[in-house]
Design a protein around this nucleic acid. Structure first.
Ligand SMILES: [Zn+2]
Ligand SMILES: [Zn+2]
Ligand SMILES: [Zn+2]
Ligand SMILES: [Zn+2]
Lengths: 165, 165
DNA sequence: TATTATTACGTTATAATATTGCAATAGGAG
DNA sequence: CTCCTATTGCAATATTATAACGTAATAATA
């Protein structure tokens, strides 16, 4: 677990070990600063989500928590996930009923997810221009947008290569 | 049911009776043309979805089917919904685990939904420009987008007026 | 028409996802 | 320490969705 091997995130090569460590450290610092309790269960769930750039379902997380010696009733996972999502450390991918660690924490952002339908890796990007367009058209009808989530489904580069044609 | 009263769709005033009738007729014609079986359950579910511009959960639909004299085991609703979604007559709103009738049927479209968090009305619009931007940035990382869904959450005009401040 | 294949339906059961309620406990503020 | 609040432990339950399988209806073929 937490190998140094570079894996594809945002379907790009990167040093995932550093990626993981930076994110955990940033989370710790953010919690310290905002007096949030980064309890063992919350920390562990974030570690699990960060271990790969894939979406994990709540019950998968629950299994992993149990393996790690935590209690394993559903609320354990759901409460930790709620904390992480509320504080911007993770996002829920609605299409998958699953969760990913946020790769853009701290910045105010409307996330766009690119979800590979084959490997279920999830890349998160900003979506600045598009949201702007959307806001304008919404305002025309008096709708006030508070949050926008874009979920794009497709195939990543490496899965496309191995696809049966 | 199916009153003539104009209600807010896309959070705009319109003659919903005509809106409903046109959509049902278009669905019938599309099914005739494509040799799709527009069976009573499928028709009824589309009628229900079209009766308001709100998202309905599968079990709510199931209740309404039962009231209308249909069988009421979950597969009855899910099968009809699957048919409607597959053929573009309805969309699933993932955030709500619920379904809305498509208001842009026939046109190839990547839907954008504006979902009022208060009344749960759902307006569907195109999202042309934004998808273009997205495709470009996706291609840069080798990700091939097949489908994009944008779900914007907020408050509609009329709910905003009544909101507790 | 008879034969075969396909599609849809009826029914039961169960899986997968998520929440509620309440008692017990742990940490901080005063 | 004591009060207060946030968090946890635990049991039950709610909600959403699918699997499995036989039957009936329809379509395609002969
Ligand atoms: Zn990484
Ligand atoms: Zn992939
Ligand atoms: Zn209407
Ligand atoms: Zn509203």
């Amino acid at each position: 677990m937490y190998k140094t091997k570079t894996i594809s995130i945002a379907f790009k090569q990167h040093n995932h070990n550093a990626c993981w460590g930076n994110a955990m450290q940033a989370a710790q610092e953010y919690c310290d600063k905002h007096k949030l309790k980064f309890t063992p269960a919350r920390r562990k769930v974030l570690e699990l989500l960060l271990s790969e750039h894939r979406a994990l379902g709540a019950y998968k997380i629950l299994d992993l928590l149990r393996e790690a010696g935590f209690k394993s009733q559903p609320p354990v996972a759901y409460r930790a996930l709620e904390f992480l999502v509320e504080n911007g450390f993770a996002h829920k991918i609605e299409r998958l009923n699953a969760f990913v660690a946020c790769t853009l924490h701290g910045t105010e952002h409307s996330p766009t997810f690119m979800i590979c339908r084959q490997c279920e890796n999830v890349a998160e990007t900003y979506s600045p221009a598009s949201n702007l367009n959307l806001s304008e058209s919404a305002e025309a009808s008096g709708f006030k947008i508070e949050q926008t989530i874009i979920e794009a489904r497709g195939v990543c580069n490496s899965c496309a290569k191995t696809e049966i044609l």
